[in-house]
């Protein structure tokens, strides 16, 4: 069929339909892995990679225009910096509240064990790491896939891929 159009705007109709169905489920699963990091295997890093995989899936299936509508580069950089800074901010808050850097200053009681709001600051750390990893890995994939290194004479040169 129309190969030129397909290459510039992602993959075939089948892939796009399946991607439309599964992307929400993968996103929710990533959020679950992040939020339940203190109760079940997983955590901020693994959940963040799954969340980044959602954006990479959308980019591979639909092309970069649609993913840039959801997550422009400026917004990605903002989210990554926000994650890193909020991780540090919670650590500083421990220093401010109780005098110890990285102190878990939210009190935990035995009644809250095995519930979602257990673990004090661990939940906030997990969310911060997930935001950072999600935006960072997506941005790296994005810049890797739009740049192409070519050999010009005897010098390597980076050009934007068409």
């Amino acid at each position: 069929m129309n190969d030129e159009k397909n290459i510039s705007s992602g993959m075939s109709e089948v892939v796009k339909t399946v991607c439309n169905i599964v992307e929400g489920f993968i996103f929710v699963f990533g959020c679950y892995i992040v939020l339940y990091g203190q109760l079940s295997p997983g955590g901020g890093f693994a959940g963040g990679v799954i969340l980044a995989a959602v954006f990479i899936l959308i980019m591979l299936a639909f092309g970069k225009e649609r993913v840039l509508k959801i997550m422009p580069r400026k917004r990605g950089a903002f989210i990554e910096a926000l994650g890193a800074l909020s991780f540090l901010a919670v650590a500083w808050a421990g220093l401010y509240v109780s005098g110890i850097f990285f102190k878990n200053f939210i009190p935990t009681t035995a009644a809250s064990h095995f519930k979602l709001m257990s673990g004090g600051t661990i939940l906030i750390y997990n969310i911060a790491i997930a935001l950072k990893v999600m935006a960072g890995l997506f941005l790296v994939f994005f810049v890797l896939s739009i740049t192409r290194v070519i050999l010009e004479g005897d010098k390597l040169k980076m050009v934007k891929k068409q």
Binding site: G37, Q38, L39, S40, P41, G43, F102, N104, T108, T109, A110, S112, H113, F114, S118, G119, G120, T121, I122, Y125, N126
Partner: peptide, 15 residues
Amino acid sequence: NDTGSANIVTSVILD
């Protein structure tokens, strides 16, 4: 009891 996190791995790496 120290951290309130049921997942010991998470309690070690984040606390």
